[in-house]
C-alpha cells in the first residue's frame, strides 16, 4: 500500500516536472518583449533594457530556468511581472474559491450521477429514455452557456440568486450559498450528464453478471444487491470518469468564474494570459498539474479500496 502511494507520487512528480519544464521553455522563449509591454510605447530603449535586466530576462534561458527551479524547490514561484505580487500569494488567495466550486460540483456530480444512473439502469423503460435524453443534452450544451442561461433567468429575471460576486462562507453562510449555487450547478451539469451515462452503463453491465443472479438466488433483494454489490463493481469505471471530469471542471471553472465574476484562479488566469504575465501563467500551470496529480492519486486509492484486485501492489 505504502509502496503503491510512493510509486504513484513519484510518477506524479515526474509528470509535474516534465510539464513545468516544457511549459517554462515554451513560455519564456515565446514571451517576446515583455519589458516593452509593461512599460508602454513611450518607454526609452534604455528603460526597456533596464526592465529586462531587472526581470532577469537578459540572462540565458537555461540560467533563468535553473533560477526558477531553485526558487520553486524553495517554494517560491517568482513575482508577477505586472503587479509585482508574489505568484504564490496571487494563486493561493484565489485557489480556495475555485476549489470550493470545483469540489462542490464534483460532489454534486457524483451524487446525482449515481442516483440518476442507477435509476435509469434498474427501471429502464421511459425513465431510462428521459435520463438518456437529458444527459445527451447536458453533455452537448457547453457549460458556460448553461451558466449564462442560469444568470439570465434565475439571477437577473427572477432574482433568486446573486448574478455576480462571491461572499465567503465565513462572512455569511446564506450569502455564500446565494453566490456559489449557480456557478456550481453550471459546472456540474456537464459532469452529471457524462458520469450518469457511465454509471448507467456500468450498472447495466454489473446487473448482467452471474454473481447477481446467484446472490439473488440466496434470497437477497434486488435493491440490496444493487446497492451493495452492483454499485461497488460499477464504481471503478465511474470513478475513472469522475477523475477525468474533475480535470475538466478545473478548466470549466475558468469560464464560469468569468460569467459570475467570481474572484477565483480563473480570473487570475484570464488577466495573466491577456497580459502575457508569464511567471503567473507558469504558477497556474504548475498548480493545476499538482492538483491533477493529487486527484488522480486519490482516485487510484479509492479504486484500490473498492476493488480488491487493484489492492495488490
Amino acid at each position: 500500500m505504502l509502496t503503491f502511494i510512493i510509486r504513484r507520487l513519484l510518477a506524479g512528480a515526474v509528470l509535474v516536472v516534465v510539464i513545468t519544464t516544457v511549459a517554462f521553455f515554451l513560455l519564456y522563449a515565446g514571451s517576446g518583449n515583455v519589458a516593452r509591454k509593461i512599460l508602454g510605447n513611450s518607454a526609452t530603449q534604455a528603460g526597456v533594457a533596464e526592465k529586462n535586466h531587472q526581470l532577469g530576462l537578459d540572462r540565458p534561458i537555461l540560467v533563468q530556468f535553473g533560477d526558477w527551479l531553485t526558487n520553486a524547490l524553495h517554494g517560491s514561484f517568482g513575482d508577477s511581472w505586472f503587479t509585482g505580487q508574489p505568484v504564490n500569494d496571487a494563486i493561493a488567495s484565489r485557489l480556495g474559491v475555485t476549489l470550493t466550486l470545483v469540489i462542490g460540483a464534483t460532489v454534486i456530480t457524483a451524487v446525482f450521477a449515481v442516483v440518476l444512473g442507477v435509476w435509469a439502469a434498474t427501471r429502464r423503460g421511459w425513465v431510462d429514455r428521459i435520463v438518456q435524453f437529458l444527459s445527451v443534452l447536458g453533455f452537448g450544451i457547453p457549460g458556460f452557456l448553461i451558466a449564462l442561461a442560469l444568470v439570465l433567468v434565475l439571477a437577473i429575471n427572477l432574482k433568486l440568486f446573486a448574478p455576480t460576486g462571491y461572499t465567503s462562507f465565513s462572512d455569511s453562510p446564506s450569502e455564500w450559498i446565494k453566490t456559489v449555487t449557480l456557478p456550481v450547478i453550471a459546472l456540474a451539469i456537464g459532469g452529471v450528464a457524462g458520469v450518469t451515462q457511465q454509471v448507467r452503463g456500468s450498472v447495466i453491465d454489473a446487473l448482467r453478471q452471474d454473481y447477481v443472479r446467484t446472490l439473488r438466488s440466496r434470497g437477497l433483494s434486488t435493491t440490496s444487491v444493487v446497492f451493495k454489490h452492483v454499485l461497488r463493481n460499477a464504481g471503478a469505471p465511474a470513478l475513472a470518469v469522475l477523475a477525468v471530469q474533475f480535470v475538466g471542471l478545473l478548466g470549466g471553472a475558468v469560464i464560469v468564474e468569468q460569467v459570475f465574476a467570481i474572484p477565483g484562479v480563473g480570473q487570475v488566469a484570464v488577466t495573466a494570459t491577456s497580459q502575457g504575465d508569464i511567471p503567473l501563467v507558469m504558477g497556474l500551470v504548475l498548480a493545476t498539474a499538482v492538483i491533477v496529480v493529487i486527484v488522480n492519486l486519490v482516485i487510484d486509492l479509492a479504486q484500490g479500496a473498492i476493488n480488491p484486485k487493484v489492492r495488490l501492489s
Binding site: 509528470l15 510539464i19 511549459a23 515554451l26 513560455l27 515565446g30 514571451s31 517576446g32 477525468v244 480535470v247 475538466g248 478545473l250 478548466g251 470549466g252 475558468v254 469560464i255 488566469a269 484570464v270 495573466a272 494570459t273 491577456s274 497580459q275 502575457g276 504575465d277 508569464i278 501563467v281 497556474l284 500551470v285 493545476t288 498539474a289 491533477v292 496529480v293
Partner: peptide
Amino acid sequence: MALPGIVVLLAARSVL
C-alpha cells in the same frame, strides 16, 4: 491529458 485543455490554451495564448 494531465492538464485541462483551457489551461493549456490560456498558456499558449499568453505567448502567441
